[in-house]
Design a protein around this nucleic acid. Structure first.
Lengths: 225, 225
DNA sequence: TGATTATGGATTGTTAACAATCAGTGGTAA
DNA sequence: TTACCACTGATTGTTAACAATCCATAATCA
């Protein structure tokens, strides 16, 4: 066994941010987290500093840690970085996706379809993000995969802050079309569809303020995860 | 005043790694660092965890922290990520470099020229890296700039581990030619030169083992920085 | 002699108490 | 009423002592 203590805390908070159950600006008090995870305050501290390194938590000296609130400029930078990184990832995927990889992509598409039928917004958000991280894993570049993990996380915060319409998720069939292009080993088409897809997501956000509207920490992370 | 304590430690170690004064595999003992920086062990701990987040330090539970030793696969991934990220950075630079930015680039080229004359290897390494981080800053995308900081740092480790010839630094005039292309607002040529430049660096490394050959920590970081 | 196992010293990890800082509250004076 | 200031409670930051783990040396046994 390793030491899944701060890892558990980090992953729980990252999941909550990715699912948009934790909103930008929410205070992450040390005592509160210590109580929730039944652990020492020093573990919470370490977890928070890891999250700070991930750029999803802002640490104000003597004032505590808060879920980061990306600025409009941050949003632009994040999406431009995603285009740069996911382009290379998809080039790799087209080049070296194996048959099981393609099967995994189709399986993921099926899950997304199923979630679209139900009215399960957190699941939809998680699967939508999962598609991109799955591509990153198939691409095989661990550096790019790690960066994309971070960027999709920050994208969740950005979308939660600046999304316009009620449904700013990944569009209906765009993922499926990308998979089809990958399966056909058509690099140009894959990259074109990917770029269109990312710009489509980006187009769904508007850069005007929104109220924080935060829920309590305990409700999000507290009982039964 | 902020709290330049762990920041000082982190920056000192990062500088030492970037300059290749700290080699891969060197142990970073907590007590030793506490003595060197005359501070508490907990600050050293925080600094080391930040460096772990930067992927330039490996943390082995109950065994301490060591300067990371990138694998050949890591090396490939790092350089592919650099190509992806610096391509977008340079596109930005060509688009929005101001006159003072161009002047800063020329000034940097002058510094590199001067260092080439002398036999100051650490200065050459630092300036070579500085050229790329300067481009990143001019590019204006803070996300990509931060990633490139990390990647150039890891590149230093990789080059120190796997470099073949005695002079695997950035080639003579490649930086100058890139600046000329930027100044001409010639995006295609800039990107071509950049790609060639990065592949040239990458070509200078061979993926066979090298002896660690580490110097003591105190000699590198100890007296008078 | 060679391998295996105790043991000592050093290093890392954890805990709890203490100090410093900040936000919010209430009071006082203009 | 409003602005300013002191105070209190809570939260974060720091320190030092304690516990657990690991590496290396040395002793034991085949």
């Amino acid at each position: 066994m390793e030491k899944p203590l701060e890892t558990l805390i980090v992953d729980s908070i990252l999941d909550a941010i990715a699912d948009q159950r934790l909103q930008a600006g929410t205070k992450l008090g040390e005592q509160a987290l210590s109580d929730i995870f039944a652990c020492n305050r020093v573990h919470v501290r370490r977890a928070l500093s890891m999250l700070t390194a991930w750029q999803v938590v802002d640490h104000l000296p003597n004032r505590g840690a808060y879920v980061a609130t990306p600025t409009p400029q941050d949003a632009r930078d994040v999406f431009q970085a995603r285009r740069a990184i996911e382009t290379t990832i998809c080039r790799n995927v087209v080049r070296l996706a194996s048959a099981p990889d393609i099967a995994a992509l189709h399986q993921h598409l099926a899950l997304e379809d199923a979630a679209r039928g139900q009215d399960n917004r957190p699941a939809k958000i998680r699967l939508s993000r999962g598609f991109h991280t799955l591509l990153a894993r198939i691409g095989g570049n661990s550096v790019l995969a790690r960066y994309l993990d971070e960027l999709t996380m920050r994208s969740s915060l950005i979308i939660g802050l600046y999304a316009t319409g009620p449904d700013t998720l990944c569009a209906e069939d765009e993922h499926a079309r990308i998979v089809a292009a990958i399966e056909a080993r058509d690099e140009a088409r894959t990259l074109a569809l990917l770029d269109e897809h990312l710009r489509h997501i980006e187009a769904g956000i508007r850069f005007d303020e929104k109220p924080p509207l935060l829920g309590t920490l305990f409700n999000v992370l507290g009982p039964a995860r």
